[in-house]
Amino acid sequence: MQLQSTLTCPHCAHAETLEMPENACVVVHLCAGCGARLTPKIGDCCVFCSYGDVPCPPVQRARDCCGAPMDEGL
């Protein structure tokens, strides 16, 4: 299980490595480079899944962010 992910801002390309919570999604992140408000892309549960180099811990465990198994057919 990886608990760090490097987020890259789609607006300014600023990258920062952050600790991810193990049991929650981060749905809003403010870019330290340009101040842009990052939110998940449609279909993603959190900013780490959308803009990070490592998906969030629930997704790494093949669970959704509420702890339920993810539908493998999607």
Rank of each mutant, 00 (worst) to 15 (best):
V47H: 04
L30S: 14
L30D: 11
L74A: 06
A15C: 07
V59W: 01
V54P: 01
V27F: 06
C65A: 14
V47K: 04
Q60N: 03
K41R: 13
V26G: 03
Y51H: 05
C56R: 03
E16F: 08
C34L: 01
G52I: 00
C45M: 09
S50L: 00
L30R: 15
V27A: 08
M70V: 15
M70P: 02
C9M: 08
C46G: 00
P10A: 11
E16C: 09
G67E: 04
L18T: 09
C65R: 05
G73A: 10
H14Y: 13
Y51T: 02
R37W: 15
L18D: 11
C46T: 07
C66R: 14
Q4V: 02
E72Q: 07
L38K: 00
E16W: 05
A15P: 06
L74S: 03
C12G: 03
Q4K: 14
C25V: 01
C31G: 06
C45H: 01
A32L: 14
P40T: 10
C66S: 15
N23T: 11
P21Q: 06
E16Q: 15
R63P: 00
N23G: 02
G52L: 01
K41N: 11
P57Y: 04
I42C: 02
H11I: 08
C46P: 02
C9N: 09
D44T: 06
L74R: 13
Q60M: 04
G73T: 13
Q60S: 00
R63H: 12
